[in-house]
Amino acid sequence: MNDESAARAGVLHGAAVIEQIKKAGIEYVLSVPDLHTSKGLLYPIANDPAFKLIRVCKEDECLGIAAGLSYGNKRALILVQYTGFLYALNAIRGVACEQKLPIALMVGLLGKEAGLPPQESKRFGVRIIEPILDVMGITRTCIETDADTPRIAPAIDEAWRISRPMAILIGGRPEAP
């Protein structure tokens, strides 16, 4: 590994995440802006004609819209900050979990310290996300660097295969493509 690639090994590029989202057949992205994923994911997605971006007013709207889209076999990705995830918990419980729907959540962990597992963060809100997902029975994967991104598409495909919600936690802050 040369110096440049070594330096990049710990980086998460938005392009690598977006490539996986496309690979998973995501057509709709439902989002409330998140500073953590703003430049690296949301702006590129907004400018990518492969996606239909719906900007919603509050995160729980996403659960209803994604549920409705599933009746046309349309795959949606819900892109929100962890605070929005916490806000929408009742809808996640009632719509995604109890109705056993294939719903993909991508949750930005704003403020998580680089390289630290979410549960070791000094931020209370970040620290509790994984335990909450575990209690709710929602499978999860945390994406910290480009090396983690190949897990994204298979995880989304699996959610659709078994018709269950899943969560992709964005730990590293994605750099713009």
């Binding site: 709709y28 239909k52 729980d60 709207e61 996403c62 659960l63 209803g64 819209i65 994604a66 549920a67 409705g68 889209l69 599933s70 009746y71 046309g72 076999n73 349309k74 949606a76 009742n90 809808a91 419980r93 009632g94 719509v95 109890e98 109705q99």
Partner: peptide, 22 residues
């Protein structure tokens, strides 16, 4: 018929998704 359940207030959001899907 589609009965909006799970979280109060989301009937129109479910409907919006259905309208886009179909």
């Amino acid at each position: 018929n589609y009965f909006s359940s799970g979280a109060m207030g989301l009937a129109s959001s479910h409907g919006l998704g259905l309208a886009l899907a179909r």
